[in-house]
């Protein structure tokens, strides 16, 4: 698993992808930080974190689009699937590599907190809750993106699929309001990422929210493993 993690992280930086992802996240994150915190004269970073969801919708699909689709296209998946490692190790290796790359992105928020601390000490507990929230949200989106990448050979399709799901998650609450059938409306509210993420931005770490995001991560990592299992047997 470690070999795969190392290779994946190196591959982000052997092409422009890694640098573009980091640059885009830092530029747009910095913009939101300036607008919602510095320009608004507040040390509350909740608005910044809340706005970061929109960036994640576009950044994470770029991060995950080539995880498996490129392997399939270049037929390098044969090296992984015939190596003496389990499918779980292979999938988790890819997943953790994307998570580490994602951590490189979101640790910039720590710098935002340090900058704010020059003006007034921020509420570190709320910051920690926000950080955990954005970490879990990103991890769930990465798991979905990785799954999409495992079912197609095209990076573009994987990326567009990821963006569509992200946008859907952003608007699912509005859709739920518009739906008149109660159980559908309830169901849509139950799967809305925004619903679960908002609590973290308010400094609330509830077990339900943590379990929700962890469940999404586990479910889609499992689905990815099943994709390869199915391919082997079909």
């Amino acid at each position: 698993m470690l070999a795969i993690i190392k290779r994946e992280i190196l591959s982000y930086f052997s092409s422009a992808t890694g640098y573009i992802i980091l640059a885009a996240f830092y530029v747009f994150g910095g913009f939101y930080f300036y607008m919602t915190s510095l320009a608004s004269n507040t040390t509350d970073l909740s608005y910044t974190f809340s706005s970061l969801f929109i960036i994640l919708i576009f950044i994470i699909p770029i991060l995950t689009m080539k995880l498996f689709s490129e392997e399939k296209k270049q037929k390098t998946d044969q090296a992984l699937l015939t190596a003496p490692i389990s499918l779980t190790s292979m999938t988790l290796g890819k997943y953790f590599a994307a998570i580490i790359m994602y951590l490189f992105c979101i640790t910039i928020t720590l710098i935002y907190a340090i900058i704010v601390s020059f003006f007034n000490s921020p509420d570190w507990a709320i910051f920690a809750s926000n950080f955990l929230g954005i970490f879990l949200l990103g991890s769930a989106l990465i798991a979905i993106g990785m799954f999409l990448s495992s079912i197609t050979e095209s990076q573009i399709i994987a990326a567009i699929g990821g963006i569509v799901i992200g946008v859907l998650m952003l608007f699912i609450e509005s859709i739920a309001h518009a739906v008149s059938v109660e159980f559908i409306s309830k169901f849509l509210n139950k799967i809305s990422f925004m619903n679960y993420y908002d609590d973290f931005t308010l400094g609330i770490i509830s077990l339900e929210n943590v379990v929700f995001f962890l469940s999404v991560c586990i479910l889609f990592v499992f689905f990815t493993i099943r994709v390869f299992e199915k391919k082997r047997w079909s």
């Binding site: 470690l2 190392k6 290779r7 591959s11 270049q74 037929k75 015939t82 190596a83 003496p84």
Partner: peptide
């Protein structure tokens, strides 16, 4: 040791890095 019809090469890597990765992958 398997060489498929299309060698499974990560073309963006150097030969050294690729063999080192495969060495680690095969434990």
């Amino acid at each position: 040791g398997y060489l498929p019809e299309q060698p499974p090469l990560y073309v963006d890597m150097t030969v050294k890095a690729y063999l080192s990765f495969m060495y680690d992958l095969k434990k």
